[in-house]
Design a binder for these strands. Structure first.
Lengths: 147, 147
DNA sequence: GGCTGTCGTAACGATAATAGTTACGGCAGA
DNA sequence: TCTGCCGTAACTATTATCGTTACGACAGCC
């Protein structure tokens, strides 16, 4: 499917900011988050910008600038993040209109659309069951060294 | 997610072959299927080749060559097709290894892997509930002209 | 045995999305 | 005024999908 890492990186950033704030810090910088995720600060700023548009984080400019959570980790779900950073549907239709003179070509798109809707609804329910609080919990529960 | 149309086109091809065979024909050619899907015959042959490797269809060469179902439409599910034509996982991890010296960087991948596994398992269950028989049924149930 | 139609597959180009990088203006607190 | 970081544009690299052309291989038929 040519899967991308946007959801993973966004969840990483949110968990990082959440933990950082619990350690008493006010704001997190894209540079520190990028160092943890081993990527470029611009990638983080772009993703966090989309999360800000969705109302999940806030940013301050000027001196002492950085990012902070707009909502508690426990009230943010992977579905919120998914909707914020993933634009399109899971499965695509034909790139060109099928032959409408053919019975299958005529009916295939309505049929698949209905089926895909059900499947995506199930996916969304599943994503909504996972909060970022749980993500951070799972992160912290990972043993420091493999046995 | 940069969704692709492979599952859609593969389902289209299977439904087309199934209906064609019910109309009394022996084998379907990639050219006819491609005409219905409004794409190139090579695209169809590539997809059907993957379905053949998965044991869903068979192909004959030589004169009177073409494609036929290896199993009944009712015994083929969208999960079978999905596994045949979609290689990777739904969500990707970081492209580079996160900072293992950071608590979040160290724990994020095991955490997300577990979460993604559960979600993909749910997706697979949902795909397994839809047979190609139902797809063809939905296709044929589509009204010829919108009211 | 040659003819014919289709598969099987390689090869190439077009398109698009993601991701990484550099650069730079703008903001706000010290 | 200085400083640190955001916000964003711009460019490149990489990758996957899709479309297309081309051609050898195969098998039934005349």
């Amino acid at each position: 499917m040519s899967a991308n890492s946007r959801l993973t990186i966004a969840a990483h950033a949110l968990a990082w900011i959440g933990l950082y704030q619990r350690q008493g810090h006010e704001v997190a910088t894209s540079e520190k988050i990028a160092a943890s995720a081993n990527t470029n600060p611009v990638v983080i700023r772009r993703l966090l910008g989309e999360l800000r548009r969705a109302g999940l984080v806030e940013s301050r400019r000027g001196a002492g600038a950085g990012w902070s959570l707009a909502r508690e980790l426990g009230s943010i779900t992977l579905l919120d993040v998914y909707d914020a950073v993933e634009p399109g549907p899971l499965f695509a239709m034909h790139r060109t209109t099928p032959d409408q003179g053919c019975v299958v070509g005529h009916g295939i798109q309505p049929a698949m659309r209905g089926i895909y809707q059900d499947i995506e609804e199930t996916l969304r329910r599943e994503l909504a069951r996972v909060t970022l609080e749980k993500v951070l919990g799972d992160v912290l529960a990972t043993p420091r060294r493999p046995l």
